[in-house]
Amino acid sequence: MADSVATTARPLEVFVNDRRVPFPTRRVNAAQIKATAGIRSDHSLYLRRPGGNEPFRDSETLWLEPDAHFFTRPPSGISCLDDHR
């Protein structure tokens, strides 16, 4: 991993779900971003670009840009069975 981690002089900050999150390195994968931001692992990560919001798989590596905005989403579900419980 050492060769894939670029260390910044001071923590770089991005936004995850509108909350500032500092990162010591610019090169991280989506799972690391979620873990650092305290997001559940079964949620998915997206880079916010209106009209072109971009998904990232957990293993996918990103080069963080300062003040980039990410959001996360849980799986969605519906059920009519609950009605009959």
Binding site: S44, R73, P75, S76, G77, C80
Partner: peptide, 13 residues
Amino acid sequence: SSHGMAWHPNFDV
């Protein structure tokens, strides 16, 4: 899903 239907948020996005 144990009941109903669940889907990946990539579809929502």
